[in-house]
């Protein structure tokens, strides 16, 4: 009787195990399906030989710049890749120092009550939809830049809006990286009689370095993949920007703008740029993961 009962329980667990494992296999299938569909849609573009120059079209398009005239069969992605990188780097250049200093403020300067309020504000901002940031940038920031240097919708506007969007992430991750530094290091620095500035700059920041860098790389990945806010404020002219005040079009914006009517090789080129973007973002996330792991190890072996 007892054995029969246990058998019954075991077989019930076995069925659970099997069906849940099947669900889990579905996740792997989902990733494979996504890759399969991106690849198969991008395939005509990836393999097509460029009759004018010879060789693979993707590489000639990346290295030379035939311009972006999809209706004439010219798919020069280079200006948009450069614009994506410029927007990302610009946003990091602004958001990293500001976010880092705000992380230091949260960890070392703010009173407990104020830190709680500040964190709440940062979390609230991190949760605001990107399209709302885009709306705000379009109706506040762009007219403001126009007064200064028309046309307003520009690389600068995109950089400013994006840096505002990734700032909360960088501030919160730097604060938590600083908090995970072993307490002994800080007390040791105090015991050595270092002044507060030196404690922070020479002891705490180097110790928290890999966590801060990991958070920054994640923010960069987010900036690169961000579509709506940049699409709304960047002006969307396909060109290599010469100054901060010129309109640019980034890769993600290009997909959002042209997907609706693209057919044939044009559509394939959009999927290829999506694939390219995904690979770059994966590379960045992998770097962040490696650095984050280093930080956790460091925090354990204190």
């Amino acid at each position: 009787m007892m054995a029969k009962c246990l058998d019954h329980l075991r077989s019930k667990d076995g069925r659970w195990n099997a069906s849940l494992a099947l669900l889990t296999a579905g996740m792997v299938a989902l990733l494979l399906t996504i890759l399969l569909f991106l690849m198969s849609e991008a395939w005509p573009f990836l393999i097509s030989a460029d009759t004018g120059h010879g060789g693979n079209r993707l590489f000639t398009n990346l290295l030379q710049n035939p311009g972006w005239y999809p209706l004439e069969g010219r798919f020069g992605l280079a200006p948009m890749i450069l614009a994506s990188l410029a927007v990302m780097l610009g946003a990091i250049l602004i958001a990293l120092p500001l976010g880092l200093i705000n992380g230091i403020y949260l960890e070392f300067y703010a009173s407990a009550a104020f830190a709680r309020g500040f964190r709440l504000l940062l979390n609230l901002l991190a949760g605001i939809p990107s399209v709302v940031f885009g709306l705000w940038g379009l109706t506040r920031l762009v007219p403001w830049i126009t007064q200064w240097q028309p046309p307003g919708a520009s690389l600068l506007a995109a950089i400013l809006v994006l840096s505002l969007m990734i700032l909360p992430t960088i501030a919160l991750t730097s604060a938590s990286a600083l908090a995970s530094v072993p307490r002994e290091l800080h007390t040791g620095a105090i015991a050595l009689g270092l002044r507060r500035t030196s404690q922070i700059i020479h002891i705490m920041l180097p110790a928290a370095r890999s966590g801060i860098v990991a958070g920054t790389i994640l923010a960069a990945a987010r900036a690169l993949g961000e579509t709506m806010a940049v699409l709304m404020v960047a002006g969307n002219v396909v060109q290599i920007p010469a100054t901060l005040f010129e309109p640019v079009r980034v890769l993600t914006a290009n997909m959002a703008l042209e997907m609706a009517y693209a057919v044939g090789e044009h559509r394939a080129s959009l999927f290829a740029s999506g694939l390219l973007l995904t690979l770059v973002v994966w590379g960045l996330s992998w770097m962040a993961y490696r650095l984050g792991r280093h930080q956790r190890k460091f925090a354990r072996h204190d």
Binding site: M27, V28, L30, L31, I34, F37, L38, E41, A221, L224, G225, E226, T227, T252, M255, A256, M259, L270, F271, G274, L275, L277, T278, V281, W282, S285, Y289
Partner: peptide
Amino acid sequence: TLDVLAGIPSIVYGLFGNA
């Protein structure tokens, strides 16, 4: 797989969803 999936930008999910 899950970490890789989480890293795909949302616009690329849009491309996939469309296809």
